[in-house]
Design a protein around this nucleic acid. Structure first.
Lengths: 339, 339
DNA sequence: GCTTACATTGCAAACGATTGCAAAGGGGGG
DNA sequence: CCCCCCTTTGCAATCGTTTGCAATGTAAGC
């Protein structure tokens, strides 16, 4: 029954005007110590808390950040979400979630819905935006940061690991380990991360005069990755090493190799992934992988987003963080490999 | 710099009043075919989309659901979040995330922040609310559903699996398998799920005239669960089976048993978990566990929430869904066990 | 042709805050 | 004692909607 207290109720109880109350709660504004005290007392008695939505209307700042995310089953994303939400929460922002499910066309609808909420900014995780959408966000004055995905558009910021260099490191590592028939299981081919990782990997091979011995597509899905692994390894002269475009699929591939095909990892075949999700370090998989530091990526994302929200002249940039190889037990380690 | 179109701009362009435009977009309202057409045309030309926040102000319905969640590292929650967000999205609601980090006291602050956003409802996942908080939500007229946690309070709805029955099933299963020294690794003792699972398990043992041979506390954390496992198994006469309060910890326990202590699972010791997260079915763990169907739990959560939002006379209820045992390979299977 | 009824429309008041502007208040310096 | 300046305060407009109420128009019933 006790309706939520409003500014007007506090004002009446404190015997001052509405604006006086508002100013007491506005850091920069002028208010006498006497007024401030009366107001605080009244506010406390009424349990007053400002209505964020009303404030958003007049100020034009909702302190809501829209997050578009395609899937949460790859553990990299929940992890990033947790860090992101905490970081934004500390700065007084909050995350409104939008699942952009598989069907490609619905990203448009989702972004429209996001804009309806007057968000102050958008984080698009593992999702690409069409040029019309980008334009729409731009004209609405809403900054967008692409998380773990790149796109050429000038008005878009993005944060990625150095996928190309990462892929190359994997090639160097596997070649140094004496592998000769290298396979690659690709992610969804529309993704920049997939393309860059593969490009780096293949470039690394090329420099050694080699090329891919086998290639299959996993689309970042575990089921498809399993099918890809079966196809790639259930035949004569299979690869002796495989680079899988992310950890999520790499686990599925390892399961197929070990438990369906009876191959030993890394005895018969070396497996390397990408992301370094926590599970990669668990002894059951002990996966050699390229590390994308979610905390650093999120920190950059938040910094850029806030910068663009709070100073309108800030220009979008593309940030790349380095991606070290985490050497573990799922791939043969070259003799004398440093660290 | 094309500012976002407003009702007023559409009205002017269509040559009608603001209210006419509003009514064209309001399903039940009356508007002539002629007006509707003019308005729709003008709206389309201007790319008009309603401002959700402005609508929320006057209607009192924000179509935002606040989600409080303590941790996302237990994969049960990301999975639930994805399903929840999709289900609500379909009904025109969206999820605003609030991380209630470890520090217990801050739940209060978090709930206050949630209410500031004028949410239409709250889902509290794996979090308990103090009675003052409950009262605050109630007086604000905001329905709350506890997800995967129970609490006596009359004004709170909750959705859980039948944790007690689940624990009992585990006891019956392990006893039928001929185990004699049963251990239990507990979750955080403040959690109703922890208490119920343990109670069910211990009751099951008691009926067979047994009691716990060992007990340790894992607090739903993998690190603590590992420590608990070391303490429990690194001695003479360790348990020959252990029930771990959730899958998340069970994986950590299996890792310790197999890779640190060199024990065989289920040869030397049987392990049973609770939740049936996807990873439990992967062959690397192949964990016997009690299934909490996230999709069914979320469906109930959404149904109850919407019901309470849309009809004020709806009363809170407690829902329990059944929790079947998923028999896999991490625990010895009794001879002749059905299915 | 006149009344009755109903569908359509516009006006204006909310919703709960922020904020520019002007009036009032107060203190210090000349 | 007066003036000036700076701080404090209130008024009122504004943000973009929804919605009750009253006014208008139109068609039907007698």
């Amino acid at each position: 029954m006790g309706e939520r207290a409003t500014l007007a109720m506090v004002a009446k109880r404190a015997g001052v005007s509405i604006s006086a109350v508002s100013r007491v709660f506005t850091p920069g504004a002028s208010a006498s110590a006497q007024t401030a005290e009366k107001v605080r007392k009244a506010a406390a008695e009424l349990d007053y808390r400002p209505n964020v939505l009303a404030r958003a209307m007049v100020s034009g700042k909702s302190r809501i950040i829209g997050l578009v995310v395609a899937y949460l089953d790859n553990y990299f994303y929940p992890q990033a979400l947790e860090i992101l939400s905490n970081a934004l929460q500390e700065r007084g922002y909050h995350v409104l979630i939008f699942m952009a499910s598989q069907t490609a066309g619905n990203i448009d609808a989702v972004v429209d819905e996001i804009l309806d909420y007057q968000v102050d900014g958008i984080v698009a995780a593992s999702v690409a935006l069409g040029s019309d959408l980008t334009a729409r966000c731009k004209s609405a004055g809403v900054p967008v940061v692409l998380f773990n995905r790149g796109q050429d558009d000038e008005s878009l910021s993005s944060v990625m690991s150095d996928n190309c260099a990462g892929g190359r490191k994997v090639a160097e590592f596997l070649l140094a380990g004496g592998h000769e028939r290298l396979g690659y299981i690709a992610g969804w081919e529309g993704a920049s991360t997939q393309r860059d990782r593969e490009f780096g990997f293949v470039s690394g091979l090329k420099e050694a005069g080699l090329s891919l011995a086998a290639r299959a597509i996993g689309d970042f899905s575990q089921d498809k990755a399993k099918a890809a692994a079966r196809e790639m390894f259930d035949k004569a002269e299979p690869p002796d090493a495989v680079f899988v475009a992310n950890d999520h699929m790499a686990f599925a591939v390892m399961d197929v190799l070990r438990f369906e095909l009876g191959l030993s990892v890394p005895g018969d075949v070396s497996v390397v992934g990408y992301d370094d999700v926590p599970l990669a370090a668990w002894p059951a998989y002990n996966l050699t992988t390229v590390r994308q530091a979610a905390n650093r990526m999120v920190a950059e994302t938040v910094a850029m987003l806030i910068e663009q929200i709070e100073q309108k002249d800030a220009i979008p940039r593309k940030v790349t963080i380095d991606a070290p190889l985490m050497v573990r037990g799922s791939a043969r380690v070259p003799k004398g490999w440093k660290i």
